[in-house]
Design a protein around this nucleic acid. Structure first.
Lengths: 209, 209
DNA sequence: AATTATCTGTGAACTTTTTCACAAATTATT
DNA sequence: AATAATTTGTGAAAAAGTTCACAGATAATT
């Protein structure tokens, strides 16, 4: 057990899917699952599931399958979900407010403490559930309230500056929704979420198959 | 020219990135670009860029590079962006309203005609820029105003029903933001956007590297 | 006009990812 | 208690994706 082979990026990207699927099974009161059954629910192959899970040690049992609760707990641990995260959001437009008020994140342990915007008048609209401050206050705020994750929900032009302020303020991860590819430094992890990309993949397939 | 080899899904997922990068170059008034220069801006290898673009025929010129405007136009065409799309959104919560009011989509030719929600009182909040109707009216609406793309921005429980109503109403593509994996029928393309997934990939890397 | 620089297109090598196939372990059945 | 049915873990094969390396075409320079 606890083999910890090299875990490829392809496997890492599938882990959240396993976590979600196992959560659903748990809610349905299903205690054990075989790779075969899980493959049907997730649209993967059973072989791939076994191979993926095996990166983290032998968590299943021959002739039985996997214990749903135990496997989910272990994957949550691997994903770093056994702690809480402090989050600040830069940009209080539609996307920033949607992120700040989405209860699904709160349930996973992500707490949005504050939003920052060049135009703090946006505070009223929609009520994001956390205060909106002017962007000038971001650095001072982070000095007093350290944050783990910075969400960038600004227009493209402002994204680089927001990234700079956040990393200078000690944030260790950036979740970027602006339509630019922010490059990661070694001390800060970045995920660029290009919402438009998946929409264009849709239109590609509509047109080409 | 016009080779049209098999285009792998990996290439398709990179096309929107090319389109975006070329748009940026065009805005900066840059008329030609080599795979080498583009590789630096995009964080890919020059070789991969040449290989990718070559799927669609020889669009570059040896000793010169690629014509930015021409290449962007061609990729837009491949992505199906030379037409307009009618879009309906199911779910008028934070995500649904954010999608409906995001100007970036409108600029690409995606027009949100209406939103539908189990609770149409959501109409006032935030002002999504399109009318919000009760979900019961969706089928009748689609019969009169055919739509190309259906956006699902409901809670998990409601996503399957929304998908059924939309496909029955003749929608040919589903852009799903609900945290369930909708499976595609052959007549309807699906992209499941699991926003949470990229957040968990962030925490994975924060914890493990 | 000739020479040097640049740069694509492309087959081949290499790497990564996925699938196959089966021994070994466990559970269920008779 | 013995037999049959499941089901994982895993090495190896296959497939997919990426990088290398260079011939050949174009552009820039002398």
């Amino acid at each position: 057990m606890e083999a910890r082979n090299k875990v490829s990026e392809a496997v890492v990207r599938r882990l959240p899917g396993y976590y979600r699927a196992l959560g659903g099974l748990e809610k349905d009161g299903i205690a054990r699952i075989s790779s075969q059954e899980l493959s049907v629910r997730m649209g993967l192959t059973a072989s791939q599931i076994r191979q993926d899970i095996n990166c983290f040690g032998a968590l299943g049992q021959q002739g039985y399958g996997y214990n749903v609760t135990e496997l989910r707990r272990r994957i949550g641990e691997i994903l770093g979900l056994e702690r809480e995260y402090h989050v600040v959001v830069v940009g209080a437009g539609n996307i920033g407010r949607a992120v700040a008020s989405y209860q699904g994140f709160a349930r996973l342990g992500f707490h949005v403490a504050a939003l920052f915007d060049a135009n703090p008048a946006l505070a009223q609209h929609g009520g994001p559930g956390a205060p909106v401050y002017p962007i000038e206050k971001l650095s001072a705020y982070l000095a007093e309230h350290p944050a783990d994750i910075g969400v960038i929900a600004t227009p493209a032009e402002a994204a680089h500056e927001a990234a700079g302020l956040l990393t200078a303020g000690g944030v260790r991860a950036l979740w970027n929704f602006a339509p630019v590819d922010l490059q990661a430094g070694p001390e800060c992890t970045v995920q660029n979420v290009q919402l438009t990309d998946s929409l264009l993949v849709l239109t590609y397939h509509m047109q080409n198959d």
